[in-house]
């Protein structure tokens, strides 16, 4: 037990140190510093929401269009940034492998946590601002919003754990992965409600784990009126084996990692 506690202690120390290091290298200490992590998703989601509002009018699928776009877009950007940060994460941080207590998995965890916090802050900030201005519906059930967020994030992490080692194993994969991010536009469920699809399409959409998470989130925001469709355990049943596979790949890749 003593060694387990000690290991946990080292783990906490390493994650904290890596987080601070990552934040200072990426954002520096000038002007707003690490608050930059929420600016990008904020601007992205804001502009896209404005675009939709102007071109499509105030409602989409019978719900507030701005709330609909923002609730879909920010998680999708979270996925995209996390995956982009996971590509070549090990070689980019090769010098950290000089310290034996730093494991390759820590690098993925740290990059994921930073994206997760940044996007969650952006989501919270934009939603509460719009809510205060009366431009956002007051959430039907906050629990579902949070559950949906966590599921979406877990899915993101499970893919990142696989992508990071794969990108080290083959250059082809490294180049292809950023492109496949576009597949997430339909697969994330960010821009549709399952209830508004034809039964055949809805069936197909529900094979994608993040769609379930997105539906939970939207139930939390808009209420049962959107006839949400999801299963509670499907995203989990998908993510856990993915993480296991990712851990195996990480272990394999670590053996062959060449460090300057």
């Amino acid at each position: 037990m003593a060694s387990l506690a000690k290991g946990w202690d080292i783990q906490k120390r390493v994650i904290k140190a890596l987080m601070i290091r990552e934040l200072t290298t990426r954002f520096g200490r000038e002007n707003i510093g690490f608050l930059w992590i929420m600016v990008e998703p904020l601007l992205f989601a804001g502009l896209i929401a404005l675009l939709w509002r102007v071109t499509k009018g105030p409602f989409e699928f019978g719900v507030d269009i701005v709330a609909f776009v923002i609730s879909g877009y920010i998680p999708m950007v979270l996925f995209r940034s996390t995956i982009n940060r996971a590509v070549s994460a090990f070689t980019a941080n090769g010098s950290l492998m000089y310290h034996r207590q730093v494991k390759v998995l820590d690098l993925i965890i740290v990059r994921f946590i930073i994206e997760f916090i940044g996007h969650m802050m952006a989501y919270f900030f934009i939603c509460s601002t719009l809510l205060a201005l009366g431009l956002f519906p007051s959430p039907h059930d906050l629990g579902f919003v949070i559950l949906g967020w966590l599921y979406f994030s877990l899915f993101t992490f499970s893919i990142a754990v696989i992508v990071a080692p794969l990108s080290e194993m083959s250059e082809v994969i490294e180049k292809i992965i950023p492109v496949t991010n576009y597949m997430m536009i339909p697969l994330s469920g960010a821009f549709f409600l399952v209830g508004s699809l034809s039964p055949a399409l809805a069936n197909a959409a529900l094979y994608s784990p993040p769609v379930h998470a997105m539906e939970m989130m939207r139930l939390g925001i808009f209420g049962p009126g959107i006839s949400p469709q999801f299963e509670f355990f499907y995203p989990l049943a998908f993510a856990l084996p993915c993480i296991a596979l990712g851990l195996m790949l990480c272990r394999r890749v670590r053996r062959t990692l060449v460090i300057e």
Binding site: I10, V14, L18, I20, H99, Q101
Partner: peptide
Amino acid sequence: ARFIARIYG
């Protein structure tokens, strides 16, 4: 130095 101090406790 800060980083090294942190990871080595």
